[in-house]
Nucleic acid binder design. Sequence first.
DNA 1: TGGGATTTGTTCGTATGTATT
DNA 2: GAATACATACGAACAAATCCC
Lengths: 237, 237
Amino acid sequence: MDDKIQRSRTEEVHEALRLAILEQGLRPGARLPEDAIGESFGTSRTIAREALGRLAVEGLVELKRNRGAFVAAPDLEEGREILSVRNGLERVVVQTLAGHISTQQQKTLREHVGMEREASSGTTPHRPVRLSGEFHLLLARMTGNQLLSRYITEVVSRCSLVFASHGRPHSSECAVAEHEAIVDALVAGDFEAAALVMQRHLDAVAARTLPPLRAGTDIRDVLARYAAESTDTRKPD
Amino acid sequence: MDDKIQRSRTEEVHEALRLAILEQGLRPGARLPEDAIGESFGTSRTIAREALGRLAVEGLVELKRNRGAFVAAPDLEEGREILSVRNGLERVVVQTLAGHISTQQQKTLREHVGMEREASSGTTPHRPVRLSGEFHLLLARMTGNQLLSRYITEVVSRCSLVFASHGRPHSSECAVAEHEAIVDALVAGDFEAAALVMQRHLDAVAARTLPPLRAGTDIRDVLARYAAESTDTRKPD
DNA sequence: TGGGATTTGTTCGTATGTATT
DNA sequence: GAATACATACGAACAAATCCC
């Protein structure tokens, strides 16, 4: 018998696709035909279809009725929405964690930040970005709150997608320092301080990646925030 | 041709099942065989299966490998986790809304609270509960933030499930007064005040339904929060 | 322990709807 | 504007796993 846990075929495909999207092997807007996916993974359309369905729930792919699946291409307005939610969730994380960091956990966090620092001087392009995201996932998991972990995973993934769609390569050095400050604050145990550092960190990330709104960018991106003023939530298609 | 929007068969079943679970037509722990569902809705297993998959992502049903689907039966620890997350999300809601309530929106909210007040003196058992949940959904939708709406929908649903599993019938009169206070605070535009009222409201809800933690409760519920210190997230099955 | 009944996991074929020339 | 090409929506049947007697 296998000693690795039996994982459904669907979950395998789901995870693989997810990685491919986040690593930008599949770019935002790319088509995802069930046939092609099934063939790639040596399975049938049914599995591919189910995996796509779950990715759609997570917001990583967009499902268009009778037209198929596409890698989600969130616009800047959507990016701001996601960051707004993420802010609230990360606040819960630091609230839960502040003053309850074990020495073992502290060690784990310090080591991770160390890896980030190393990677930041390396040449691989998206490795620092991935590590940066994993820092937040690490924190979320330490809360022991499964739902919180799931949501953080989701918003971090979607943030990556937003950056992939609109961000230009940015130096992530400052992010490392900010992560360090977060760990310090959590260990110190002052919740308010930790919350503030976290919020400023996320604001900084946002500023680095969603800043422009300058001339030359897609006009629709600019208009979106004004269109959002009207509170209708239904979108015709 | 139909003038109502074409909705996929899957979505119909998904929504119907969801309602059935929330209205407690299907009790927590109940089996959900694909066959039976398909037959009930006059469709095949494929549709039922997909609907169940999505409900699983939302946390309303639990999928056991090769054993089928069951209505989720969250334990008290899970209930606290959900409420913790919900607290953070609702905070974002009031943060976004405070001071930005249009007169039309105010009217809508007042009317809803009015309905709640009426229903609270009625005899139907779960109607006040549903209305109470819908109040929060209403607020979430008013933010215009789609992700936030989705998450709030999910946590509100799961809270209902927690209450269904562990709550005893509780008078919801006080909840109406609390909802009123929230609207007042939002209209007044003081975010901090609104956040405080919202948090106290959720704490009150929690206290009414998940109060114990006294001697005699399941010890594992108490220990779980300490066990969370160790950061392993995998559960064997 | 074992075998039959039941339920899920998966595949593939047909119908339907959308985009394109 | 109609016909063609293509991809999805849905369903029926087979294979494998689990449960129960």
